[in-house]
């Protein structure tokens, strides 16, 4: 074999390698471009949500003043005379969310303290997944449970003349059960992150486990617990099916949980299921209510995550 052909074949190999390199480079450039497009979809989603809600609400607020909308207490957009005081829907939403918040904080925090401070590892590994099943059950099932199981019990306890079939208490209790794993998981994460040395110091001073939990661990993990609570309540505010099925369709600004109410989400669903003509003022109300709901949950989520990020800085 002459040196010449050897050189040629070397050149051929080099060409092949270079062209493969080039192909790989092109492939990578195309893939990187596709991945960037995928990542942009999330930004487009947010922009889409804001534009749709604002554009459709703009037509509504051209006819109804935002002040009347935000301060009025009568909500009768589908009846004459029409009134657009959203406070009665907001009140219904907050009443249910408050009940759910109390239930989930009591149960979730208790469960988190037990799992983090008392339970042996084996028991913890059994209990946690069972509680988390609660978070995976569809909300329509919780709605069924509230209507067919909890409401009859409430009627037995308080008397069926005082408890309306569709009431805020039943929806709130069941929603509290639904968001309990959220509070317990996030709170427990915060408690587990409290350094062992803080607990040991308290035990060395003769503290009981209850005192360690309430005077050392909870104060140290407080921001995580608060954040879990805010995020869970935000979830309750945005929840639809439980309030649609179990809490009623009567806009009602009340503090009595045994009465029928209408939540913001339930109103949106009610109108979109009805015969309301597209483009009418009644139809636009669901976007105005949606915009307010979006703003409320966004603020809660941002505050919740801000509290968590502050908490992480403390120990890392």
């Amino acid at each position: 074999m002459s040196t010449n052909t050897e050189l040629e074949s070397n050149q051929a190999v080099l060409d092949r390698v270079t062209s493969r390199r080039h192909r790989q480079h092109v492939e990578q450039a195309i893939v990187a471009w596709l991945l960037r497009v995928a990542a942009l979809i999330s930004i487009l989603t947010t922009i889409g949500i804001v534009i749709i809600l604002v554009a459709q609400s703009a037509g509504f607020f051209a006819e109804v003043s935002p002040w009347d909308f935000l301060t009025g207490t009568e909500w009768t957009p589908l009846l004459k005379p029409q009134q657009f005081g959203v406070l009665s829907l907001v009140g219904g939403t907050l009443l249910v969310a408050a009940i759910a918040g109390i239930v989930s904080l009591t149960l979730g925090l208790g469960a988190a303290i037990f799992l983090s401070e008392y339970a042996p590892e084996k028991l913890r590994r059994v209990l946690k997944p069972i509680l988390e099943v609660l978070a995976g059950i569809p909300t329509v099932v919780y709605g069924y449970f509230a209507l067919t199981f909890i409401t009859p019990i409430l009627q037995d306890v308080f008397g069926s003349d005082r408890v309306i079939v569709f009431n805020a208490l039943s929806a709130g209790l069941v929603m509290g059960l639904m968001i309990m794993p959220m509070v317990s998981t996030l709170s427990e994460d915060a408690m587990v992150a409290v350094p062992r040395s803080l607990r040991d110091a308290a035990y060395a001073l003769g503290a009981t486990r209850f005192e360690v939990a309430t005077k050392v661990v909870i104060p140290a993990a407080l921001s995580g617990i608060v954040a879990s609570f805010i995020l869970a309540v935000s979830r309750a505010v945005g929840e639809t099916m439980i309030v649609k099925i179990a809490a009623g369709a009567t806009p009602n600004l009340t503090l009595n949980p045994l009465e029928s109410i209408q939540a913001m989400t339930a109103y949106i669903v009610q109108v979109s299921l009805g015969e309301t003509p597209q483009g009418s003022l009644e139809y636009k109300t669901i976007f105005a209510v949606g915009l307010l709901l979006f703003a409320m949950t966004l603020v809660m989520n941002i505050v919740g995550r801000w509290v968590i990020s502050r908490f992480r800085q403390q120990y890392n």
Binding site: G48, V269, S272
Partner: peptide, 20 residues
């Protein structure tokens, strides 16, 4: 933005889907 989208109520996605 993705973290925020995870917290948007599902009914809002319904409104987005209906309009878009």
């Amino acid at each position: 933005n993705i973290a925020n989208l995870a917290g948007v109520p599902s009914v809002i996605y319904g409104l987005l889907g209906l309009a878009v």
